[in-house]
């Protein structure tokens, strides 16, 4: 009896090893930085224009992750989108399983939600509208949301709120990012939040909450601030 159990156990382990070897995993990590240090939510920072700010919320969608080998798609992730929320540590890591025999030298993803998902039916998981990333007065996902306080903001609670999104021409805010990959199985993406806020005069532009020219401009700026570390 004991022996047969042992054999089954060995079989299970060997099977799982065989199957495990067919897939490789790649881990993506997302990190917020402020002045080259990990971003601390709710702590005060001073911007070059002498504004004192704090960040309460920073969340964004990463969708349509693909691996490329010499500009050929070798792997497309089946998960439609991931909501990355700097306040939620478990959301900062994405594990991709891809076939081991596929070589890759680049990774691509969308920062935000593309038009095909925007016009689809109501979706579940990270795309459920209860995640606070859906505009309710006008259909569409918010791609990137950053909120906090600014001494210069003229709003009632000294707030700033940037909800960037929009999927329709001419205010399509979606950004597609592509990075080279090396053999490492862990890629850390950093977003330099201080650079995003520098240059924004929160005494004037303290609120963007609809698809607009500003939303597109800031989304482009944002895309440039994603780096691989």
């Amino acid at each position: 009896m004991k022996l047969s159990r042992f054999i089954v156990l060995i079989l299970c382990i060997s099977c799982s090893l065989v199957f495990a070897q067919k897939n490789a995993s790649i881990q993506l990590n997302f990190k917020g930085l402020f002045n080259n240090l990990p971003l601390q939510l709710d702590s005060n920072y001073i911007l070059p224009n002498n504004d004192t700010i704090s960040i309460e919320t920073c969340r964004f969608y990463v969708s349509k992750i693909q691996l490329f080998n010499n500009n050929q798609v070798v792997f497309a992730d089946s998960t439609l989108a991931y909501l990355i929320d700097l306040a939620n540590p478990t959301s900062l890591t994405i594990n991709l399983l891809y076939p081991l025999n596929k070589k890759h030298n680049a990774i691509q993803f969308n920062l935000g939600i593309d038009s095909s998902l925007n016009v689809a039916e109501v979706l579940s998981g990270d795309l459920d509208p209860t995640k606070g990333m859906y505009w309710t007065w006008q259909s569409g996902y918010i791609n990137f949301k950053i909120e906090g306080k600014s001494k210069k903001s003229p709003s009632r609670y000294k707030q700033f709120q940037y909800h960037l999104g929009g999927y329709l021409y001419p205010n399509n805010a979606l950004q597609t990012l592509r990075f080279k990959t090396n053999k490492k199985q862990r890629i850390t993406f950093v977003i330099e939040v201080n650079k995003f806020l520098t240059g924004l005069d929160m005494s004037k532009v303290y609120q963007i909450m609809s698809p607009s020219e500003n939303s597109v401009l800031l989304s482009k700026k944002l895309a440039e601030l994603f780096k691989v570390k």
């Binding site: 016009v119 039916e121 109501v122 509208p129 209860t130 859906y134 309710t136 007065w137 259909s139």
Partner: peptide, 27 residues
């Protein structure tokens, strides 16, 4: 403003002058 029936209910639920609720809170 709303492009799909599935999302229509969100608008009155969250509009300040209508139900002024949050869908997260409804759930």
């Amino acid at each position: 403003a709303i492009h799909h029936l599935d999302f229509q209910s969100l608008a009155p639920i969250e509009n300040h002058d209508e139900m002024d609720e949050k869908i997260e809170h409804v759930i």
